[in-house]
Design a protein around this nucleic acid. Structure first.
Lengths: 257, 257
DNA sequence: AGATTTACGTTCGAATATGTTCTGTTCCGT
DNA sequence: ACGGAACAGAACATATTCGAACGTAAATCT
């Protein structure tokens, strides 16, 4: 059997099952483990699979749980999914919505994928990819360009200029930190500027924010609390924080799982 | 037995089994390995099979006009890597370069990752990702935003506007098709527009183009041959095509493995 | 016929593919 | 936390394959 045929076989197996293990391939292909590894090297070098300990997984599956991203996205997971579900209720077919970068907005994106006739604008590659993967043709996904921050946001002058040329029904923002005085914050100056542009381009601002974000301070604010139309959080939020938020934001929504 | 008959026999074997090995053909045809190889060269030159180490595999023709990235990425692999290597020679530290979407430019990106102090502008998520993965901090990667085509290019008004605001030392373009009359072509109108903007934003236009692209026609042209400063191809290019290219492009470079 | 082209085989150095051995790493049950 | 089992990958050995260069013979041209 030719090397190329083996690699086709491996690709097919990965496509079908999402993952393969080296030991399985050794049996099914009748070659040594080293040969299988070298095939996997070749395939991963071409970006077609991702090597992991014990075998390989499909690149799509894997991009959704890259270490740093996964580490974050598992924190407060039930809260985040509850918040994302509540946010998805606010989206109706025909709308044009914006999504900032972040794990909570990413979770929201997985739900938006099932709503039809939607235009989604985002500056996060991950968000764009999850929408693209399940895309039905009625969805338009617009990726805002720029340079990439460690937290997977595309930012910078290019991003700001692109966002300013757009007008959205609503924008859903994740935040790194929030408090009563400084409003919404991020730890990255350029990301703050980009987020600011997103806020200004939308008629409605919806903030997705689990209780751990309260009191966390980022270097840079990008919106005041009184600019927020809807803030969705979880029941564990500190009562004092809750009072302050109820005073200032348009509507406070508590998402129960 | 005539050469033509042998080649028919080979094609038939490939069709039936999806692949053949040189050693099998040597036995079944009763000719030398060298003769078999020359037959395979002829067939692969006409795009009827794909040569691989040990033999040849069938080139499954995708009936859709835009094969997906994964489907294309293993076609003409050795040629593409040779072309990419030659292209990387043209890039020096300190430059700002553009990369269009495509498998050959993707291959080039893996090489650019090793050159320092570079600014790379691209409208392909996959190109951006390969640069990001191995990025040393001296590299700036700018992703051009837009909506995504099946071939992984981000296109549309947002993309065009972003590109127009930039100025590059050189742009490296992959093409879907090329010929003497129509120049460089793609099968997607919006991608053509975006590519056109890339061409206009750069001082130098370098085209990466393996021999199978010659004579392939896309619906939309985005540049004439006389606008091309350097065209890099592989040695299997048809001599007549080669003559036409030498006449019209600034410089024709043939990349040997 | 003589010259030229074409097809095919042979030789040989280099590239490629694969398996084996060995050493270090990672995983997982206790 | 620990120890055995599975796994990864480097280094080496071997066999296969590749393709350039050259030789020869048949076919084709003039």
């Amino acid at each position: 059997m030719l090397a190329r045929q083996r690699q086709e076989h491996i690709l097919e197996a990965v496509r079908r099952h999402g993952a393969v293990r080296v030991s399985e391939l050794v049996d099914s292909l009748g070659v040594s483990d080293m040969t299988v590894r070298r095939d996997l090297d070749a395939l991963s070098g071409r970006g077609l699979v991702e090597k992991v300990h014990g075998g390989a997984v499909s690149v799509h599956r894997n991009t959704t749980d890259e270490p740093s991203f996964a580490a974050k996205s598992n924190r407060q997971l039930p809260e985040k999914t509850a918040i994302a579900r509540a946010a998805a209720e606010l989206v109706e077919p025909g709308m044009a919505v914006g999504l900032s970068a972040g794990t909570t907005t990413w979770s929201l994106a997985t739900r938006l994928a099932e709503i039809g006739d939607l235009t989604v604008v985002t500056n996060s590659i991950r968000v764009a990819e999850v929408l693209h993967a399940r895309s039905d043709p009625s969805q338009t996904v617009v990726l805002i360009g720029g340079i990439r921050t460690p937290s997977d946001a595309l930012v910078g002058p290019l991003a700001v200029a692109a966002i300013r040329s757009l007008h959205l029904d609503a924008v859903f923002m994740g935040v790194h930190g929030i408090d009563g005085r400084s409003g919404l914050m991020t730890p990255n100056l350029m990301e703050a500027e980009t987020n600011r542009a997103l806020v200004e381009s939308a008629r409605r601002l919806v903030v997705l924010c689990d209780h751990t974000k309260w009191g966390t301070v980022g270097i840079s604010s990008f919106a005041r609390l009184d600019e927020v139309d809807v803030l969705i959080t979880d029941p564990a939020l500190d009562p004092d924080a809750r009072r302050q938020l109820e005073d200032q934001v348009g509507r406070l929504e508590v998402a129960v799982r």
